[in-house]
Simulated scan of single mutants.
Amino acid sequence: MSNPSQSNLSHINSQGEAQMVDVSQKTPTHRQAIAAGQIRMSQATFAAIQVGNTPKGDVLGTAKLAGIMAAKQTANLIPLCHPLPLQKIEVNLIPDENLPGYQIRATVITKAETGVEMEALTAVSVAALTLYDMAKALEKSMQIENIRLLSKTGGKSGDYFA
């Protein structure tokens, strides 16, 4: 882009500098975002987590809680995100023997002027990182993969389904 000041990018001001979008004139609407990702590991690590035989304790419970807490902190982590009142945050870690590892899914709901895609993506990312941290004594070669937005509903831009 040759001249950012002439662009239609909402996060760039007339001087080409980053700015937080003004959503004060927007009407709050019901919004939901669902994000997903996965963490791949050896069969031995997967089995140890499944039976609860890990050096750091409750891997899955800790990762789920970390994902929920992360969604609540998204505006503190992503510079131009708006702080939002989150009505629901759900994080699920689903065992997947075919990886082997875990599918991670986060659903975030609000009634606000802007969406919760970043909160859902942050929840998945931090849940995966926490699962890695909790199990790294067993295996350092685990792979966090395929973090993505599955869907978002509500708002001016309409619904999105991957």
Rank of each mutant, 00 (worst) to 15 (best):
N8K: 11
S10H: 12
I12G: 06
N13Q: 06
N13W: 01
N13V: 08
S14E: 15
Q15K: 11
G16K: 02
E17D: 07
A18I: 04
Q19P: 05
D22M: 09
D22P: 04
V23R: 14
V23N: 09
K26E: 15
T29P: 12
T29A: 08
I34V: 15
G37R: 11
Q38E: 15
R40G: 00
T45N: 03
F46G: 07
I49L: 06
T54K: 01
K56M: 03
D58W: 08
L60D: 00
G61F: 10
K64C: 11
K64F: 04
K64P: 03
L65P: 03
L65G: 01
L65D: 02
A66L: 07
A70E: 04
A75L: 03
L77S: 11
I78Q: 10
P79S: 10
H82A: 04
P83C: 00
P85F: 05
L86Q: 08
L86T: 12
L86K: 02
Q87R: 14
Q87V: 08
K88W: 04
E90Y: 04
I94H: 14
I94N: 14
P95V: 10
P95F: 13
E97Y: 04
L99F: 08
Q103A: 09
R105Y: 02
R105M: 10
A106V: 01
A106N: 07
T107R: 15
T107H: 09
T107E: 10
K111A: 00
A112N: 12
A112K: 01
A112C: 02
